[in-house]
Design a protein around this nucleic acid. Structure first.
Length: 849
RNA sequence: GGGGCGAUGGCGGAAUUGGUAGACGCGUUGGUCUUAGGAACCAAUAUGGCAACAUGUGAAGGUUCGAGUCCUUUUCGCCCUACCA
């Protein structure tokens, strides 16, 4: 018997060409068919694909192919999130320009993705840095502006005084600019904002509708939006001609009798009365030093600046307390003013201790314990109100908060208020490589929308990105324009790249539409995305922004009324690898080290030098623990890589890269090919043997398992089932018997393996001369159930032995059968029988005393 | 400080959702075939014990006829977030 070796290279190329030539994955509206929109988060074109991409797109591809084979009309597109800072940085380093750099990367990565054999409709490819994409985004921006969802205001940025540039939070390391290494300053700039807070309530409430999202992500979003109930209390102020009252937001009005100070943000409007005071200016400087994003200083000491103001407790006008400016009060949450109740808030307590303010206990855990006093730790738990006149005895928090608000409202001292932590989305970036904001300013600095006929605002090509600051700002010929005969200056900020990725799923519905961002019929047919797949690191911002933009676009829109863009969400885990370091603690690549026993590692070029092995961590360039997918594909083929990356770990968990595992997957592909060759040989024999029922039983069960694994996103179980399939069929054909049903069963198996190993499975089918339509096989339930089942016999809850019984056996019959077996005797001895517990088709538990 | 997730053999991980713990893969050991094997195939592989059997899912309790799975406490690890009034 001649068996050819599986040449993955030519065969994978052959099928990829076939799919391309036949437009196998082209998607068109078809009202007859049920649609399925499968979307994986599109990549940033950083250079070449990494293992995280491979995993992400392998998962999505399995699902897409599965749905297609089940008769769905599948949309499975791909694009490039191609604006963003790395392009600018790379361009500076390599002395090219961001556009060339980006386009080259896209080309490389596209070839790589194609090599993975993904079922992508490449005709719908989009790239956010292309004018054909961002010109529509500018229209959307202006539409939102007209709807009142876009506005401009002053806000703080991280400013690098050396590079003269704005830094993103992640570029600020230990309070210093990542490139310049000098202390970052806070600077106020005029910036554009999207009014995401307009939808704060909806964005929280509608999380309930997202049944196919992981709870984890929903919780994170909920916490991020941060809804809280409370009230705004008006405090009367004495001691000043300027200030008559200050409003504070609180969720704990019930602790009002514990008031011992008011604290204001340094940006509170009242601060203007103190801006002439040198002491106050000094204090402000002090605050801005510690006030940025750093973790270490987050727990910084609480400091305050005492004013001459005196606040009066509205519940008891005899209680008069000082007013401070304090570094721990934020202007952009609530009202930028809080009342301090040290006994029941740790921050307030820290502050009160420092400035020797009163600490009055007004909640005690237990009503009977009237000696309870708060000392070193604020008490925030449940209990009962005390020392609070007419509030005494109220249960905390069930009665106390609502009751107190009622009283305050009656006395017109406060209004009920729901607050959100969520802030409006700042979309201005002082950068070149982004979508230009379609706005200009006239000589009076009045905002002018770029008129329709002057759109799109194109990003100029030849700018100097090597000098400091925002390159567009220095591009005078671009910046200065005439609108309606008037001289104007363009907005030189570009849009946050999160804007690009907040509507790309809509663009995919009409990728090639030159006139509009998307066509309403196409969007209404394909949207929402049925399954969105990507990393959990986007659980908050990207997903929240997309949910916002979908609502913003649907607002006052008679053509489109979609609120949630992603019906189903799946967050996949990371790809991890051990980390290696040399004696000087420099990171080493897996390619630089070797091991004989898998325990001790040595340098490959200095064989006697030991390597320190660290824990397995998410693959990252900085730790050098990456494996290049390209090498793996070239060495082992796409099917083997797909097979491996889906094996072992369930997709939502991290997966460990293992060279042995990779090789084992490669061997599986080879073995499976040989199995197919053998089956071709056997089934070409003319003498048929009787049906082998075992084949039907096994095949149906295997397919049933795979179906269930697919539905539950447990793709790792498809891999283990594949191994079982291999070993079952290898055994089944050992006798060289051509069972009547061998071929038909094996063909079914090949079809269900298409999603994971599409090249091999298709090639095997072709070699078997399979000429019917390739559709997902139906499971015949009659093969799923056993006639006989293994029945467990327990004594006092512990398994002792197993007997074979017929299915659905009655309790009495089962007990008889146990008795007849005679196996029970030896466990009984002299123990006293109490009762039996019978679980149908499972077990009998004999209870003895 | 807040929130989330997790802990099962030497390793990655299964377990019909409260009912035979360890599927499948890797590794290891033994064997077959080989000039050779880091190839292929076969077998074994949770622990202790010759065995019968006993013990075993981070730890300690609890509920139950029965717990990897439910409850309470606790330890450790990872991720997200940052003074949210």
């Amino acid at each position: 018997m001649e068996i050819s070796k599986y040449n993955f290279k030519t065969i994978e190329e052959k099928w990829q060409k076939f799919w391309l030539d036949n437009k196998s994955f082209e998607s068109k509206i078809n009202a007859e068919k049920e649609k399925f929109y499968c979307l994986e988060m599109f990549p940033y074109p950083s250079g070449k694909i990494h293992m995280g991409h491979v995993r992400n797109y392998a998962i999505g591809d399995v699902l897409s192919r599965y749905k297609t084979l089940n008769g769905f009309n599948v949309l499975h597109p791909m694009g490039w999130d191609s604006f963003g800072m790395p392009a600018e940085n790379a361009a500076k380093q390599n002395k090219t320009n961001p556009k060339t750099w980006t386009e080259q990367n896209v080309e490389t990565m596209k070839i790589q993705l194609k090599q993975l054999g993904l079922s992508i409709d490449w005709d719908r490819e989009i790239s956010t840095c292309s004018e054909t994409y961002y010109k529509h985004q500018q229209k959307i921006f202006l539409e939102l502006y007209d709807k009142g969802l876009v506005y401009r205001k002053e806000s703080y940025v991280n400013w690098d005084p050396v590079d003269q540039t704005v830094l993103a939070n992640e570029q600020v390391i230990d309070g210093k600019g990542w490139r310049s290494g000098v202390n970052v300053e806070r600077k106020k700039l005029n910036q554009w904002f999207f009014k995401i807070t307009h939808f704060a309530k909806e964005l929280t409430d509608d999380l309930k509708l997202l049944e196919n999202w992981p709870d984890k992500v929903k919780t994170m979003q909920k916490n991020w939006i941060g809804k809280s109930f409370g009230c705004e209390i008006d405090f009367e102020i004495s001691g000043s001609n300027n200030v008559k009252s200050i409003k504070c937001y609180t969720t704990r009005p019930d602790t009002l009798f514990g008031l011992s100070f008011l604290a204001l943000s340094i940006d509170h409007p009242i601060s203007k009365y103190y801006n002439k005071s040198d002491d106050f200016i000094k204090f402000k400087d002090e605050c801005s030093k510690t006030g940025t994003t750093e973790e270490s200083l987050a727990q910084a000491k609480k400091i305050g600046f005492k004013t001459d103001l005196i606040a009066i407790n509205p519940f008891n006008r005899n209680i008069k307390v000082p007013v401070y400016f304090a570094n721990f009060v934020l202007m952009d949450y609530g009202l930028g003013a809080v009342f301090g109740c040290p006994a029941h808030d740790q921050r307030d307590l820290d502050f009160a201790k420092k400035y020797k303010l009163d600490v009055k206990t007004v909640v005690r855990p237990n009503d009977s314990d009237d000696t309870y006093l708060v000392k070193d730790e604020a008490y925030t738990g449940t209990g009962v109100i005390c020392n609070s006149e007419f509030l005494n005895g109220l249960k905390v928090p069930s009665e106390s908060i609502s009751k107190t608000i009622e009283i305050l409202e009656q006395k017109k001292l406060a209004v009920r208020k729901t607050n959100y932590r969520l802030k409006d989305w700042g979309v201005s970036r002082q950068r070149y490589w982004g979508c230009p904001i379609p706005i200009a300013y006239d000589e009076n600095n009045k905002i002018i929308k770029i008129p329709e006929n002057q759109l799109p605002v194109k990003l100029p090509d030849n700018v100097d990105i090597n000098s400091n600051g925002n390159p567009l700002d220095k591009q005078d010929d671009w910046k200065n324009i005439i609108i309606g005969g008037k001289k104007c200056i363009r907005e030189t900020d570009t849009l946050d790249t999160f804007v690009d990725s907040s509507w790309y799923f809509l663009r995919f519905c009409s990728s090639n539409n030159k006139v509009e961002p998307f066509n309403k019929n196409e969007v209404n047919y394909w949207m929402p995305v049925d399954q969105y797949i990507g990393g959990v690191e986007h659980a908050i911002l990207h997903l929240l922004y997309s949910r916002f933009l979908m609502r913003a676009i649907s607002l006052e829109n008679k053509d489109i009324d979609i609120k949630e863009p992603f019906n189903g969400l799946f967050t996949q885990g990371m790809v991890c690898h051990e980390t290696y370091r040399d004696e000087e603690n420099n990171w080493l690549s897996p390619e630089d080290v070797f091991s004989k026993d898998g325990k001790e590692y040595f340098l490959i070029n200095k064989k006697n030098q030991k390597v320190k092995v660290g824990p397995s961590e998410s693959m990252s360039k900085s730790k050098k623990n990456t494996i290049d997918p390209q090498n793996m594909i070239s060495q082992y083929g796409a099917d083997a890589v797909r097979f491996f990356i889906l094996s072992d770990s369930p997709p939502e968990k991290d997966v460990q890269w293992s060279d042995d595992g990779m090789i084992s997957s490669f061997k599986f592909i080879q073995k499976f090919w040989i199995l197919n060759e053998k089956i071709i040989k056997i089934t070409s024999l003319k003498d048929f043997h009787d049906e082998n029922i075992e084949l039907n039983i096994f095949t149906n069960r295997a397919i049933d398992k795979i179906n269930k694994s697919l539905e539950k996103f447990r793709y790792n179980l498809i891999i283990s089932t594949s191994h079982e399939i291999y070993s079952f069929f290898s055994k089944a054909i050992e006798t060289n018997k051509n069972f009547k049903n061998l071929r038909e069963n094996f063909e079914k198996i090949l079809i269900v393996l298409i999603p994971v190993i599409p090249h091999l499975a298709n090639e095997c089918l072709e070699k078997l001369n399979y000429d019917k339509e390739i559709i997902w096989p139906r499971v015949d339930n009659k093969y799923l159930d056993d006639e006989k089942i293994k029945f467990v016999i327990q004594i006092n809850g512990k398994k002792k032995f197993v007997i074979d019984v017929e299915k659905n056996i009655e309790e009495k019959k089962a007990i008889n059968q146990v008795q007849e077996s005679g196996l029970l005797k030896k466990y009984i001895n002299n123990k006293k029988f109490v009762k039996t517990i019978f679980v149908k088709n499972r077990l009998i538990n004999y209870i003895f005393d």
